[in-house]
Amino acid sequence: MSEGFEELCRVRPIARQGMITLRGDLSAKAVKNAVTGVAGVDMPSRREARHVGERAILWMSPDELAVLVPHEEAAVAAETMRSALAGIHALVADVSDARAHFRLEGDTIREVIAKLAPVDMSPAAMQPGMVRRTRFAQVAAGFWLRDEATAQVFCFRSVADYMSGLLRTAATPGSAVGYF
């Protein structure tokens, strides 16, 4: 097979990823401590994603964070956060089984994402460590760049098949645009 007919990037579903949603005042010390204590990574600032291996904290909105932990730890981690935030106006929900995650790997991930989402994917605008909530074609989704050649996309599990099809279509061999 000639080089031009390889997939633009590898699309791999992540079978089990623990994910906890937290809403509350992100500037509150108790909230920061609860989140970083469970995730074991630093608190992200606006539009940032911090990760170490499978663990991550994603900035989702001015009052929302997503905490990623290994799937088997999610229930316990959510409970730990809940008790740490007792008496504080905050909400913790274990959404592990309500989300689907995909890992994109390859040099052309920017191009694959740019085909699907209304996001400026130029290296100057979207840098590794940045998270973006947006839509991929017709469904709500989010992603962050783990590094220059790795992205992680997440969406509602109910549209996981759709997302899988989208990503594979956008990465179809020979469909490179060569924009970035």
């Binding site: 606006r46 909105s61 209304p118 839509r135």
Partner: peptide, 11 residues
């Protein structure tokens, strides 16, 4: 103004 994203109309 909340997240600083330059959002396009469809978003």
């Amino acid at each position: 103004p909340h997240c600083g994203v330059h959002a396009e109309e469809t978003e």
